[in-house]
Amino acid sequence: MLEIKDLCVDYGGIHALSGISMTVPDGKIVTMVGSNGAGKSTTLRTISGLVKAKSGSVKADGRELLGLPINKVLEAGIAQVPEGRRVFSNLTVLENLRSGAYLRRDKDGIEEDIRWIYSLFPILKERYWQPAGTLSGGEQQMLAVGRGLMSRPRVLMLDEPSLGLAPLVVQGIFSIIKEINKRGVTILLIEQNANMALKIADYAYVLETGRISIEGPGAALLDDDRVKEAYLGKYRG
């Protein structure tokens, strides 16, 4: 369980996050939607330790994560798939996966997880020897998700996995996110594609200029007029 309380982040005087609170219960898919610059990525980067918070707390099963270096956060079972895929283009697919297990020392477990990821994404098995830079955008996103899973996280945070991908590919990625969740990995999903994200989410938060404006079960937010207007494009008759 991931608990975020009154999290504030400043970028040199500019408030990126002004006191957000949210809960990510074990085994659920929680999503955070919002427009550009709302602070979605900042939230994720603060949780993982890439960005320093001004105040507030981020607790994983009661343990404070703020102020920990990124490798400790990862060891605490919280991994992230960064925005824009960011695979290591000169390393092969297999090496990319292995780099995700960088902090692990259990060789057998790593091999087992590689096989698991190959079963989730058969295309990666076919291309395991290719440099990741030669993959298509969708395949790179699959690789990025697989790499994130290689640390065997309890919570996987995904930053805009639909970015720059064709609608059909996005659907594929989302169904795999659901599949991963069914296997017991808690998901914190950050998306601009509110429609897709809300459909698979158990609970959702809408972020606007560093504050949470609306929250509720995913399906409920899909029907919410305010959400429709802001993110889904309301039909104006």
Partner: peptide, 13 residues
């Protein structure tokens, strides 16, 4: 070399 941010996100110091 390929991507500092991603490397850091993987826990590489």
């Amino acid at each position: 070399r390929d991507d500092e941010i991603a490397a850091e996100a993987m826990g590489i110091n």
